[in-house]
Design a protein around this nucleic acid. Structure first.
Length: 314
DNA sequence: AATTGTATCAACCGCCTGAGA
DNA sequence: TTCTCAGGCGGTTGATACAAT
């Protein structure tokens, strides 16, 4: 049985943001008496807070030694260097940066440095380059340029990206699972959506299916701005998040990256997975995914329901 | 101007560690 | 050696500010 947190001793203790009055009381008390016992401090100082809360408020905010303002380039470089050898040991990193707290450094890492790393294609955990899914995307994209050579069916009535994109997803699922998957079918992908940066006027309305489609001659993949895969309850091992645009390195979520060495091997070796045929009418009951959208970009929605309805009407 | 999405960071939670009885 | 406890730590959350639509 674990030890209960000190703050659970009394439900009457105040939580949440500190008021200026509380700050004054705590600051005044510590400057006068010090903080030999955090547990006893709030009672002695007349604060209705737990000792931990007082300690945190002092260490992270009230302590006059704290340096305020933006991190300098030197500080940032030092954090990166220390993190590469220490990992997420924020307090040890903070001990090397006078005036900076572990909490401040941790927040700065998570909101600034981590993003810089990912943008540069570097894994912030390992400080090493991450596998480049762009190679995969590029290869798939190039396949669209000569559809006669495609090893799978591309119905002419649909925008080419729908089929290729579903094929891409299928192969990602295959990689992640490391097991043979059944063919992609209507029930595999419940809702297929894709983001495009491409302006409205570049999209063509195909009245036969009442959908906006891309010009098949276009290199449509370069307009894809965001792809997020989210597993539904019946998925067994898929949790993938892919973000980026054509030509960029693409961020892999930790869970996705953790899905197995097969991913690393695949992309490091610049190999493509085997493409699977798409066979309408077959059904599967797992590996259901949704593809979410980025609100900033133009959303084009061509669901697989439309897809199969359209080809069944031909 | 209103609404919605995103970024930031203060604060909390709960586990870990080490000192002392 | 074992147990208890305070302080420390890292992960996470949620309120708020800001930006975009």
């Amino acid at each position: 049985m674990g030890r209960p947190p000190c703050c659970s001793e009394s439900n009457d203790l105040k939580k949440g943001p500190w008021t200026p009055e509380e700050d004054e009381v705590l600051k005044g008390y510590i400057q006068k008496h010090g903080h030999d016992s955090w547990r006893a401090l709030p009672k002695r100082a007349g604060l209705n807070r737990c000792g931990k809360s007082c300690r945190l408020r002092w260490i992270n905010y009230l302590n006059p030694d704290i340096k305020r303002g933006k991190f300098s380039e030197q500080e940032e470089n030092l954090i990166i260097n220390l993190h590469s050898s220490l990992g997420n040991k924020w307090s040890r990193i903070a001990s090397q940066l006078p005036g900076r707290t572990d909490n401040e450094i941790k927040n700065y890492w998570n909101t600034h440095i981590r993003k810089k790393f990912l943008k540069a294609g570097i894994d912030p955990k390992t400080h090493k380059p991450i596998p480049n899914l762009g190679i995969f995307v590029n290869a798939i994209s190039q396949l669209t340029a000569s559809s006669s050579n495609l090893p799978f069916r591309v119905p002419t009535i649909m925008s080419p990206w729908t089929t290729i994109y579903d094929q891409l997803l299928h192969n990602i699922l295959q990689i992640v699972n490391m097991n043979p998957l059944p063919n992609v079918t209507k029930s595999t992908i419940l809702d297929s959506q894709c983001d495009f940066k491409k302006p409205d006027d570049q999209l063509l309305l195909d009245e036969t299916i009442n959908q906006y489609v891309m010009n098949p001659a276009e290199d449509w993949m370069k307009y894809v701005s965001n792809i997020v895969l989210e597993p539904q309850s019946e998925c067994n091992s898929i949790d993938a998040s892919l973000m980026g645009s054509y030509g960029d390195r693409i961020e892999l979520s930790e869970t996705f990256a953790d899905c197995g060495n097969a991913i690393d091997n695949l992309f490091i070796d610049n190999q493509l997975p085997g493409l699977l045929s798409m066979a309408p009418g077959e059904s599967v009951d797992k590996n259901i995914i949704n593809i979410m959208n980025s609100p900033q970009s133009k959303e084009v929605h061509v669901g697989l329901d439309d897809y199969y309805d359209s080809i069944s009407n031909v």
